[in-house]
Amino acid sequence: MSPLIQYSIDALNLGCLYALYALGVAMVFGILRLVNFAHSSLIMIGGYALVLTAGLPLALRVVITVVACVAAAVLLELVAFRAVRGANPATLLVTSFAVTIAMSSLAEAVFGALPAAADVHPALRESYSFGTVYVPKLNIATVVVTALLVGGLSLFLTRTTLGLQMRAAAADFTTARLMGVRTDRVISMAFAVSGVLAAAAALFLLAASGSVTPGFGVDAVLFGLIAAVVGGLSSLRGAAIGGLVLGVSGQLLQSFLPVEVKPFRDAILFAAVAALLVLRPQGLVAKAEGVRI
């Protein structure tokens, strides 16, 4: 066992996390062309769901968290985004800001601004050790669960009727409607899927940080957005790969940068992203769709 394994697992861990965030954002963007900052609210709700259920068996907590995130996602769409559906992008944007701020204010009113601590599972704090190499169990769990989620999502999108309808709607919503694809159904489903992804993100974020605040998930979504841009905004594959690349590079920088510049990791990472954009403006994954301006 060489330290190389440790570096790769750590890097893959962050890559998977960023891919989860990016997929959650891209799922909704693909269908609604809405940059959903409120995805962070879903992650925050997942975090508090895990805090409130502390003490219950993990499986039950996971189910409750997923249900809470999916319900919140579908409800947010119904209450906030449905009213502005078809409005111009600026209106959508302000709505998503407003929802984000409203939800975090609400969380602050209910739970207070201080961090609420909770553990996900004691085992996730342990590591496998191989000689001098330590691999946290949490990182392995993150990688495995993300792989399962991405695999399940791609099966859902390619093998089911609803999945096909969602892909059609993402490619060309108007034509999809002409085929009889029901708008409300695919949009609700896109939000529901983003809810599942948010629940997973909440689980791993909480397991790593140990506490939840009203601003939980905000940075995650910002990184997810940038990852989605890196990969090519309008495809899920692009978002996943963008997340993976951004996370893996970030973690590698973290491992190999000299100590005194380590705190500046993210700034260095984004400088690299900027350089990448100069070289590959279309994102890492070239678009299969027609060019949009």
């Binding site: 910002l222 940038i226 700034a267 984004f270 992203v273 900027a274």
Partner: peptide
């Protein structure tokens, strides 16, 4: 969206 990276 990429300008968010400036913010961060």
């Amino acid at each position: 969206l990429a300008t968010v990276s400036l913010l961060i």
